Simulated scan of single mutants.
Amino acid sequence: MPVTDVTTDAEALTMTLVAEFAAPVERVFAAFTDPRQLERFWGPPGYPATFAEFDFAVGGHANYYMTSPKGERFGGAWQFLAIDAPNGFEVLDEFADDDGQPIEGMPASRMVFHFEPTESGTRLTNTSHLNSATALEQILAMGAAEGSRMAMDQLDRVLQGLREYAQGKGTRTEILDDQHVRITRLVEGPIDLVWRAYHEPELLKRWLLGPDGWEMTVCEVEPWVGGRYRYAWAPVGDTEGQPFGFDGETLVLEAPRRAATTEHMTGTDYPTTLNDLNLYEEDGATLVTTLVEYPDRATRDMVLATGMTDGMEASYARLEGLIADQRLTA
């Protein structure tokens, strides 16, 4: 993980994050000053940022919001105070409303980004200066330290490029904490086709089957926020296993890049999980990232023990084959 340290200083009223990246200073600086690249890592998993304005000049402003898997929006605003390309820049960082205006009573900080070369690449030192002990305590209580760590730990995939980051590694499952698991798979194919494959029933039935020997017997999708879905599978022929299914509701739908849904095993009293699907295309390939939120660690471990990753890899390989054969048409 890139982040090596996150510290707070109650006397200096600061929170400082240090991270190491295997890329030159100019490349890391570019990632922090291009809003399209920033959107891929600014915000912890499950809370991706959208920059609606980005005027990178002294006195200029940037406005953004982060959207939770439940559709909640949390706004922020930067005013650029100083720029020393490519060594760093400084902003006034504030919580903002839907119009990009600072929210009264919320803490503001002077945030300094400093990039310095190392033997292996670049060291980032990001220091937030608060104006009171109360403000520092407030942002820490909101999870700023852990949120910043998780956000910066996503930057490697941006700096490397998708194919270097993910190609040939298959489906990868990463445990982020007791409740969150991140699953990634690079699919050779454009984002529009991958999005359709996730949302059109006739296409879902062709690839979302898990290991060989299963068929999708129910595939019902209401493609809108608040819409319901229901999937069911059953073994075919001599395949062992019992039929099962999932149902849930769509909470966020931003075609063709994001869909967040609840997931419940049909006909059981098992707890409901939250699945946050994100797609990103680069050079004709699409990185599929699913952040799964479990109610607790026990449920997380129970699900992972089912061999979920292997089943997903079989499905993704089938999807990739359909795209390669140009058979992904309704």
Rank of each mutant, 00 (worst) to 15 (best):
P2T: 07
E11W: 13
A12T: 06
F21M: 07
P24H: 00
P35V: 02
Q37K: 14
Q37N: 12
G43D: 00
F51W: 00
G59E: 04
G60P: 13
A62G: 10
N63W: 14
Y65R: 14
F74L: 02
W78N: 03
F80N: 07
L81R: 05
A82S: 15
N87M: 01
D93A: 01
E94H: 14
A96E: 02
I103M: 02
E116W: 05
E119C: 09
R123T: 03
R123W: 05
R123C: 08
S128Y: 12
M142P: 07
A144K: 05
A145Y: 12
R157L: 12
V158W: 05
G168S: 04
D177V: 06
V181Q: 08
R182F: 01
T184E: 12
T184V: 09
R185I: 01
R185W: 06
V187D: 07
G189I: 07
W207L: 02
V218S: 11
E220P: 03
P223W: 08
P223D: 10
G227R: 08
R228G: 10
A234W: 01
V236S: 09
V236N: 10
V236T: 13
T239L: 07
T239Y: 05
Q242D: 15
P256I: 04
G267Q: 08
P271T: 02
T273E: 05
D283L: 13
A285H: 12
L287D: 08
E293N: 11
E293K: 12
E293G: 13
P295T: 12
P295Q: 12
A298G: 07
R300H: 06
M302W: 13
M302V: 12
V303L: 10
G307V: 05
M308E: 11
M312P: 01
A317P: 12
A317V: 15
G321W: 04
Q326N: 14
R327I: 06
T329R: 12
